[in-house]
Simulated assay, not measured.
Amino acid sequence: MSLVEQLKDQMKEAMRAKDKARLGTIRMALSAVKQIEVDTRETLTDEQTIAVLTKMVKQRRDSIAQYESAGRPELAASEAEEIQVIETFLPSPLTEEEVAAIIDEAIAQVGASSMADMGKVMGALKSKVQGRADMGAIGSQIRAKLN
């Protein structure tokens, strides 16, 4: 079952359970996927759908930081609830050890030896860790290993 089909099934379950918060978040995710499908005129793969959901989580984390700095904890809590719903559809996150092993493998695979090769390493890693780890944190770990 594809990720979009899982989203649709969960949307139906949320409707039956009358869970408005979950239903709204799932509808928002499906809308974002559908918008990209309409724009590109092609059906998204599970990997591309994960990229869309990951982007949505990142946007919500940014919103939480802004709401908290503006003194709006109720809006930050709403965003946090949306993150929890979206994360149920993302693959399980990688541990620190798994991330380090994947980074070491990618550095060896690309033959990176300096910071000039960082883009190659990031390119090799992106498909492996998409939606399972924070790319910003991975970038800083790669910098530390290449310096």
Score class of each variant (00 low, 15 high):
134 D>F: 01
54 T>P: 00
7 L>T: 01
43 T>P: 04
57 V>Y: 06
118 M>C: 02
57 V>M: 13
56 M>R: 06
120 K>Q: 14
1 M>T: 07
146 L>V: 08
94 L>T: 06
10 Q>E: 15
145 K>S: 04
66 Q>T: 09
18 K>C: 01
46 D>E: 10
9 D>S: 07
42 E>S: 15
103 I>K: 12
125 L>Q: 05
1 M>H: 03
139 G>I: 00
24 G>H: 01
95 T>Y: 12
122 M>C: 01
108 A>F: 00
75 L>A: 12
67 Y>L: 09
46 D>L: 09
2 S>P: 08
106 A>H: 05
89 F>R: 06
118 M>Y: 07
26 I>W: 06
34 K>S: 13
94 L>H: 09
52 V>A: 07
93 P>G: 13
30 L>W: 02
107 I>S: 09
54 T>Q: 11
98 E>K: 10
1 M>I: 08
14 A>C: 09
118 M>R: 10
19 D>R: 09
110 V>Q: 14
81 E>W: 05
103 I>N: 14
85 V>D: 09
66 Q>K: 14
30 L>Y: 01
64 I>C: 05
61 R>F: 05
71 G>W: 02
70 A>K: 14
142 I>T: 06
91 P>K: 15
67 Y>C: 11
18 K>H: 03
7 L>G: 02
108 A>S: 15
38 V>K: 10
30 L>V: 03
127 S>P: 02
128 K>L: 08
82 E>V: 01
125 L>A: 06
119 G>R: 00
31 S>I: 02
64 I>F: 00
20 K>Y: 13
59 Q>T: 14
3 L>D: 06
32 A>M: 04
13 E>P: 01
55 K>E: 13
117 D>H: 12
91 P>L: 14
